[in-house]
Amino acid sequence: MFNEGMWLLVGQGLLETLYMTIVSTLMAYIIGLPVGMLLAVTDKEGIRPSPTVNRIVGGIVNVLRSVPFIILLVAVMPVTRFITGTSIGSTATVVPLVIAAAPFVARLVESSAKEVDRGVIEASLSMGASTMEVVCKVLLPEAKPSLIVGAAIATTTILGYSAMSGFVGGGGLGNIAINYGYYRSQTDIMLVMVAILVLIVQVFQEIGNLIANKCDKRIR
């Protein structure tokens, strides 16, 4: 059952999964990081409180986060096709992954930014820092360890989503698990796929914690 061809397939699936996960995480952060900061800054306890902006952006984030991923996957197919020219394969999966992950990332970033000591922000304002300077020179660097832990959580969550995309031909390990393990009832293949996914989650989480601890100057 596990012949050479099968292992080749698994290897390719693994690469696809990593590709989807990493590219989606990066793009989710390109969108989610500024949005999360915007949410933290415009919060009523933030440095530029703006209930209107906060409610609108927060509302969009909440709506996107409450759509189950499997439904989003199908619902955004026209958009996916428009952007990538296809709705199957791992590149196509990146589109719904980013749409689903960016709001999640935004909330993670927001909560990390809010952990930064209010006093430090006040001190930087007392030295004449602008809102932008507070974000770039205080919030981001001071929240760095927490942001990295958040990134590990985001990556593993996106990994899980990417496996789900196997149902609609998304490629990767999830696709193999569904095609062979579910449709052909080859339970052993399914188990191997799950084991590999568990292993990847462990690795990402450990790397995240390690970097976070390493760069956190509060721990000595």
Binding site: G119, V120, S126, M127, G128, K217, R218
Partner: peptide, 25 residues
């Protein structure tokens, strides 16, 4: 706000909780 930021550079402030940037030496 812009003028205020300039003025604040002429008014230093220290705090009970020190409020140092923890990730900077």
């Amino acid at each position: 706000d812009n003028q205020l930021r300039k003025v604040r550079q002429s008014i230093g402030m220290i705090f009970q909780g020190f409020n140092l940037l923890m990730q900077r030496n």
